[in-house]
Design a protein around this nucleic acid. Structure first.
Length: 585
RNA sequence: CGGGGCGUAGCGCAGUCCGGUAGCGCGCACGGUUCGGGUCCGUGAGGUCGGCGGUUCAAAUCCGCCCGCCCCGACCA
């Protein structure tokens, strides 16, 4: 490709809307342009990179038996009503009506369409297992898109769906994806870790997320360097302390004027925060048929810990949680700032599983300006649910080995879900087994967003001058820079490179050397070839790797061979970086 | 949805406080110059100042409403 014909230009200045490096560089190098919040056009450079990424996905999916299909972006709402997700998902779903006033959905994922296909196509255990996938546009009307391609509203995703006769089959395909996903990320040279994650609205019973660790990520992960435990904070467990047994003391009311936070209260009463009970009030939304029912949730953790809302939502099986208003809190008999689970009504009381072991806590008195000492679960109040709802934090002991855990931010570049029969039951995906008995299909669902993957690679591989893309992801293998006086030879080499099947971006512009080198650095193609009157004198061409400072000269006659070798070397360096990843079930 | 910031030429910005009819750098076009790290000189094109309404003799500037973009939070497969 000649740069004089390329449909994009580089920008010298940082566009003001970009403050994440990958976003800035992809804009400046002319890969992407923004149309609206979270909606992007992908220019030729990005398109070529995405195609390469998607081809890697295809190869890895095909390698585990996947068959590529294409499913629609526009769905009738009916199938989403069948699985209830039409009602469960909020404003994130794009909805509209067609000309006949039928409810329609912009695809945010494709389980419903897969299930519809399966119930029509699959009737016998002989047809299973099966793996289908597609690479298709998704629309998720995220309330806050950010960080360029890291979090967008419209994006392209490779999503695959496994179909099995039982849990064992699903487990096999899940494991196959687990490894295939590592293969994909490794081939894109992106370092990732797999963490256990919440199943969220996908449902099902097991999920992993593939995380690229970076400060610009928006998920927080708990990682144990000692034993390898890794989980999204949304579900991360930790070893709870085992407080000493104590005699239950008599409940006692104390005046605590203006002490409405745990911090102030603990200081005022001169007790550690771990001797207090923290109450949090949420309204849970529970799907009931096509409706949602609201329930008041009174959640309690020890004062030195925080509530984890994902854990809480899972514990009560709510589809959504929102903070309760002061009026709602008063309605159950509690007093904001001085609330206690003692003597409240019409609330679902959920207490963290550390509370039964924590005697004689300070809790609110449900009276302005007063708290209670020596409040004890079972004696002074009852819990409807006792389960882990505390949020894991930096330094908390690992649930598996007890060593302190670290936190890190991460970008979720892929996820895999064991859905089980969550969709096949609702949509009637059944088959006849060996015994002629009707069974539900076991499904798994697996996704990788290609744009987010590109952005993550851009985030990882760059310097102050621009991108430094791995050759597996780079839009071109080599960037041919022709300087003044070498036009004829460069033109000749350009045609030879094309003839040799090497993807080349050819800077044939009439620009100064500085501009050409700066743009080459910005665009980040891994190999740069320079031809100038200087190299011509020696009948040579300069080869420089974008990730190395030094360049080398090779004779023009040997150029193609040398470039081929350099390309192979870059690929083999990526392959050498691949290590076996044990499956963490 | 809550909090904050911003919206002036393709990009980056000044001008807004204190109203007088829009400017700088880069980029772009043309001419010349230079040629291994964003050459230099000259000429030129390009703007409903986000939109609508109001105040005023006069609005980029003051007031109101709306829209959009970015950041933090809430939210999120």
């Amino acid at each position: 490709m000649r740069m004089t014909k390329l449909f994009s230009t580089t920008l010298r200045d940082r566009p003001s809307e970009a403050d994440v490096p990958s976003h800035e560089l992809l804009l400046r190098a002319g890969y992407i342009r923004q149309l609206a919040a979270g909606i992007f056009s992908y220019l030729p450079l990005a398109k070529r990179s995405l195609t390469k990424i998607e081809d890697i996905m295809r190869e890895e999916m095909d390698a585990i038996g996947g068959q590529e299909i294409t499913m629609p972006v526009i769905h009738p709402a009916d199938i989403w009503k069948e699985t209830k997700r039409w009602y469960q998902v909020g404003s994130e779903m794009g909805r509209f009506k067609d000309k006949a006033n039928r409810d329609m959905v912009l695809a945010m994922t494709h389980e419903e369409v897969v299930a519809d296909l399966v119930r029509k196509e699959v009737h016998s255990y002989r047809q299973l297992p099966m793996l289908i996938y597609h690479i298709q546009t998704k629309w998720r009307d995220d309330p806050r898109p950010r960080a360029g391609l890291i979090r967008v509203r419209e994006f392209t995703m490779k999503d695959s769906y496994s179909l099995d006769i039982d849990m064992d089959g699903l487990d096999k395909q899940y494991r196959a994806h687990y490894q295939a996903y590592f293969n994909i990320f490794h081939r894109c040279k992106l370092p990732v870790i797999a963490v256990k994650s919440d199943v969220g609205m996908m449902g099902g019973n097991l999920a992993h997320e593939f995380m690229y660790l970076t400060p610009v990520g928006e998920d927080t992960l708990l990682i144990c360097d000692a034993c390898g435990y890794a989980a999204n904070r949304q579900i991360a467990r930790f070893q709870k302390p085992k407080p000493d047994k104590e005699k239950l003391l008599k409940i006692e009311k104390v005046a605590t004027p203006e002490m409405t936070t745990i911090e102030d209260l603990a200081k005022f009463l001169e007790v550690p925060k771990s001797r207090t009970a923290k109450a949090v009030f949420m309204i849970g939304l529970f799907p009931q048929g096509t409706d949602k029912v609201e329930k008041f949730i009174f959640a309690i953790v020890r004062g030195d810990m925080d509530i984890n809302e994902t854990k809480l939502a899972n514990a009560v099986k709510a589809s959504e949680l929102r903070p309760a208003t002061d009026d709602e809190i008063k309605a159950v008999g509690a007093v904001p700032g001085y609330a206690s689970p003692v003597d409240i009504k019409n609330a679902l009381v959920v207490v963290d599983d550390l509370i039964p072991d924590s005697p004689n806590l300070v809790a609110g008195a449900n009276e302005d300006g007063f708290h209670l000492r020596n409040v004890n679960l079972g004696r002074d109040y009852e819990a409807d649910i006792v389960v882990d709802i505390a949020s894991a934090e930096e330094g908390y002991p690992c649930p598996d080995c007890g060593e302190p855990m670290q936190t890190s931010r991460g970008v979720e570049v892929g996820n895999i879900f064991k859905l089980g029969t969550r969709y096949s039951v609702d949509m009637g995906c059944t088959f006849l087994d060996k015994d002629g008995k009707e069974q539900h299909v076991f499904m798994g669902s697996y996704g990788i967003g290609s744009g987010r993957l590109l952005a993550s690679v851009a985030e990882e591989y760059r310097d102050e001058n621009g991108l430094i893309l791995p050759i597996s992801v780079s839009p071109y293998d080599v960037h041919l820079v022709a300087l003044k006086g070498a036009e004829t030879e460069a033109e000749k080499l350009y045609l030879e490179l094309i003839e040799a099947g090497i993807d080349v971006l050819y800077d044939d512009r009439e620009e100064s050397p500085g501009v050409k080198f700066a743009d080459a650095d910005l665009i980040g193609i891994p190999l740069r070839l320079t031809l100038s009157s200087r190299t011509l004198k020696e009948k040579s061409v300069e080869i420089k790797r974008r990730d190395q400072a030094e360049a080398r000269q090779v004779g023009i006659a040997d150029a193609i061979k040398a470039i081929r070798e350099s390309i192979e070397k870059l690929f083999s360096e990526i392959a050498d970086g691949v290590v076996g990843i044990p499956y963490e079930g």
